[in-house]
Computed example of a mutant assay.
Amino acid sequence: MRSATVEVQGSWLQYVEVGAGDPVLFLHGNPTSSYLWRNVIGAVARAGRRCIALDLIGMGGSGKPTLDYRLVDHLGFVEAFVEALELSDLTLVGHDWGAVIALDHARRFRDRVRGVAFMEGHLRPIARWSDMDEGSRGLFQRVRTPGVGEQLIIQENFFVEEVLPAGILRTLSQEELDAYRAPYRDPAARLPVWRWPQEIPIEGAPADVAAIVTANQAVLADPDLPKLLLHANPGAVIGPAEVAWCREHGQALTIVDLGPGTHFLPEDRPTEIATALNNWLSRWG
C-alpha cells in the first residue's frame, strides 16, 4: 500500500493505493478519511483490482485551502482527481457523503463509470424534520444552530470524539482513534467536519444539495449500470425503510445485508464489505 498526492485546483489530494487492474475508488464521508477503508481495500486488491482510497479536500492528509467546503466543492475536487489520474472503467465505492459523491459522479460521467457501491449515504432528501428519529433530529438541530454547532464541532471536536465512536459497535483502539483525530487536532482544520451536517438536505435546504440528491436517484433507476447497496441492522442513514425504497425503485441493484451495524460499517464489517464487493465485481467486472 502506497501513499501519494496529486495537485488539483490549486491544492492537493492525498490518497492510498494498492493492487493492479481496473480501478476501484473508495470515498469516505464525515468525519473520517481514507483510513476508514484500511481493512477493506487489501482484500479487494488481492482479487485483482487497483484500489484507491482518497482523502477528500480539507480532510485526512489532503490540502486545506480556503473554501466553504460545501458538497459542490467536494464534487469538483473528486472530478479533478479522477481526471488527473486518468481513471476510466471506474468502480466507485462510497460511504456516508462519499456515497452521495459517488452517485453524483456516476450520473455526470456515465461513460467512465462501470459500477457504484454505496452504504449509509443520503439517497433521498429528508422531507420534514419530523421524519427523523428523535435522537437524530435533536443532534442535527443542535449542530445546525448558529453558535452551538461551531462550539460543538470546531471547538470541542464533537464529531470525532463522540459521533464517530457512537456509530461503531466495537470499541476503537487508542491507535485507531488517534489516527482519526490526527487531521483535526487544530480547530481551524475542523471546518469541513462542521460544514457536512449543514449540507444534509432537510425540508428543502440547502436547495442545491437537495437537487443533487434527488437527481442521483436516476442512477439507482439506471437499468444498465450495476449497483451494490450494502446495509446493516439497524443502520443509521440507511435503515429498513430506505432499503425497502431501494428494492422498489432500484434497477440493476444488488442488496447485501452485512449483519449488525449502525453507521461506520467499514469499521464493524470490513470483511463482509470486501467479500460482498468481490462477489459483486466478479459477476460483471
Rank of each mutant, 00 (worst) to 15 (best):
L281W: 07
A4Q: 15
L92V: 06
G250N: 03
E248Y: 05
S130E: 15
A244L: 06
A276P: 00
M132E: 13
E120L: 13
R112T: 12
Q151R: 15
L277Q: 00
Y184H: 02
V237G: 02
V213G: 04
R38C: 02
T145G: 06
E242V: 10
E203A: 15
L54H: 08
V16L: 11
I200K: 09
G63M: 07
T262F: 15
D186T: 02
N216R: 05
L71I: 09
A43E: 12
G204V: 02
I154Q: 06
L277D: 03
F26P: 03
V44R: 06
E203L: 05
I202W: 07
L139R: 13
L123V: 04
A236W: 15
P31I: 06
Q251V: 07
A99C: 04
V113E: 09
A127M: 03
S88K: 15
A215V: 10
R137P: 06
L169T: 03
P31R: 08
A188Y: 09
L25C: 09
M119S: 09
S88N: 15
A276L: 00
E267M: 14
L87G: 03
I126W: 09
A274I: 01
D104G: 08
D111H: 12
A166H: 12
A210Q: 06
A127V: 13
G29H: 06
V213N: 08
E203S: 13
G135C: 11
V116C: 13
G29A: 10
A215N: 00
T66C: 15
P260E: 15
E79K: 02
L139E: 15
Y184N: 02
A45T: 00
G121E: 03
D104M: 11
P187E: 08
G135S: 14
S34A: 13
P65L: 08
V256E: 10
G261R: 01
W37T: 02
Q217D: 00
W280A: 09
G204S: 11
G48K: 07
H249R: 14
A80N: 01
V209Y: 04
G149F: 09
G250A: 02
W194Y: 14
A207K: 12
A43F: 10
V163M: 12
R108D: 12
W12T: 08
H122F: 13
R110Y: 03
